[in-house]
């Protein structure tokens, strides 16, 4: 009952062009049926994410470990709440990040869980920068 060959083939890596995404904007793309949020973060959002003491977080992870160095303004996360799988809404909640409407989990501008029932941060999908304005997810 595991995924069949065509489902696996359809889950191959995809390329996303980042050049149309302005600062402060974010886009949602689907990969393997999952929504992936790509945020072009503002300076303020990056600073907020980095000012938090990592040890104080429910799922400690530094912002630097969640983005690719040299591309600090780009946050790429799987937009599926780690509680029970709803889709959080971007640019909502108290932490300038994501807010899940189902059970009230709130994530910060680095996609890290800050408040609510979710146990973990929004996962970062495997991706790499092909060029400065293009990433490959998968």
């Amino acid at each position: 009952m595991n995924p069949d060959a065509s489902t696996i083939a359809a889950g191959a890596p995809i390329e996303v062009d980042l050049s149309p995404v302005a600062e402060g904007q974010d886009i949602k793309v689907f990969w393997r049926g999952k929504p992936i949020y790509i945020s072009h973060r503002t300076k303020k959002q990056i600073d907020e994410a980095r000012a938090v003491p990592v040890a104080s977080l429910p799922d400690p992870q530094s912002d630097e470990a969640r983005v690719k160095s040299g591309h600090d303004q780009w946050l790429v996360v799987i937009g599926i709440c780690t509680h029970l799988g709803c889709i959080p809404i971007a640019h909502e909640g108290n932490y300038d990040g994501f807010f899940c409407p189902c059970h009230g989990s709130q994530y910060d501008s680095s996609g890290r869980i800050r408040q609510g029932p979710a146990p973990a941060n929004l996962p970062v999908p495997p991706y790499q920068f092909v060029s400065d304005t293009k990433i490959q997810i998968g």
């Binding site: 009952m1 595991n2 995924p3 069949d4 489902t7 889950g11 393997r32 049926g33 999952k34």
Partner: peptide, 17 residues
């Protein structure tokens, strides 16, 4: 969960099974 879904998320294979 992947086994239940038959894919990477709830989708057509899930509905079929």
């Amino acid at each position: 969960v992947t086994l239940l879904w038959g894919g990477y998320s709830v989708g057509n294979p899930t509905l079929n099974r």
